[in-house]
Simulated assay, not measured.
Amino acid sequence: MKTKVALITGGYTGEAEISYKSSAFVYSQIDKEKYDVFLIDITPQSWEYIDQDNQKHEIDRQDFSLNINNEKIHFDVAFIILHGTPGEDGRLQGYFDMIGLPYTSCGALTSSLTMNKGYTKAIIQDIDQLNVAQSVLLFDIDRPNASEVVKNKLSLPLFVKPNAGGSSIGMNKVNTWEELPKALEDAYDAEGTGKQVLVEEFVKGREFSQGIYRDSKGELQVLPATEVITTREFFDFEAKYTPGLTQEITPAEINADQKNRADEIIKEIYIRLNCKGMVRVDFFLQNETDKFYFIEINTIPGQTPQSFIPQQVKASGRTATEFYGELIEAALIS
């Protein structure tokens, strides 16, 4: 009998657009001979499965089951490819924990923590050979005086971003103090990010993104790194999703020492944050010092054909089908 997989997509934020693209690619790559895959769309309006005849079937949220032609379908595992709320911030994971359904991503606490960039930095800042940029975490109560708080504590240039956002939505680079108020407004007003803002001093260096996951044998597998070279001011939403604006080199051209250090740092980040499944860590390699600076961790990284993780899986010699099967099997035994 095939394993029944609920492939979760959609979402409550602007990142839903990317979720649909990611889940379409994952669906196309999963081994249908081994897995019976149901694409479940979760939106603020409904949780539903649309069958091949375009018929909609509402999920029973009591036990996350389906009723199709009077047959009750229970899933063996949830494969979460939902970026942003509620799939990346721990809400869906907490629900699945309560009903006892295994899933492929990090647990509820880790997912919730890592959506908060400021809190994540506090947990990983003492990891050996890992550095974090000077920063200020602003809450909604700080909004009236946010510019003055930043000026008193940080130096230009700066990155201003929603503390709980993704896909660089609401993020700006600030080169002058005159640019700061608008950047703060953009970050505070970004949809579904909790009205918290993280402001960080700019680190000049090469930018990398690297995946890591735990396989079905319990072993950590670090994927080859990707270097990101963009024609934009920084790797913003347009650079991420507009063809031609960014050059992505996988595997990255780094020396053996840099590779070994990056691999060990990323493993320690994964362990320190108690991660599960696949995650992606973004970091800078500072030009002057050759030191690694943490940017952020993504616990539901993009899975479009152009996304970093599929690139890295291919560069590692694996197929996407093998990789996604490994994530499903690891979730079933965890």
Rank of each mutant, 00 (worst) to 15 (best):
184 L>W: 02
109 L>C: 00
112 S>V: 03
104 T>P: 13
137 L>F: 14
334 S>D: 13
48 E>R: 15
314 K>Y: 12
191 E>K: 14
241 Y>T: 08
187 A>C: 13
89 D>G: 05
191 E>Y: 14
44 P>K: 09
304 T>W: 11
211 G>D: 03
334 S>K: 14
87 G>H: 00
201 E>I: 01
66 L>Y: 09
67 N>C: 13
250 T>M: 05
109 L>Y: 01
161 K>M: 07
69 N>R: 14
132 V>G: 05
193 T>V: 11
256 A>D: 08
182 K>M: 13
24 A>P: 00
196 Q>C: 10
314 K>A: 11
33 E>D: 15
61 R>Y: 07
334 S>C: 13
41 D>H: 09
172 N>L: 07
319 T>N: 07
244 G>F: 13
146 A>K: 06
186 D>E: 15
241 Y>R: 08
148 E>L: 09
174 V>T: 05
10 G>A: 03
221 Q>S: 13
3 T>R: 06
18 I>Y: 01
188 Y>L: 06
207 E>A: 12
150 V>Y: 00
168 S>N: 08
56 K>P: 11
306 Q>E: 14
296 E>W: 03
202 F>E: 02
102 P>N: 04
124 I>V: 10
100 G>K: 07
37 V>R: 02
326 E>F: 06
23 S>K: 04
238 E>S: 14
249 I>A: 11
147 S>F: 14
296 E>I: 06
99 I>D: 06
178 E>C: 12
168 S>L: 04
166 G>M: 09
225 A>T: 04
243 P>Q: 08
192 G>Q: 11
220 L>I: 02
18 I>L: 04
189 D>P: 14
183 A>H: 06
49 Y>C: 05
152 N>T: 08
177 W>A: 07
292 F>N: 03
201 E>P: 02
85 T>G: 07
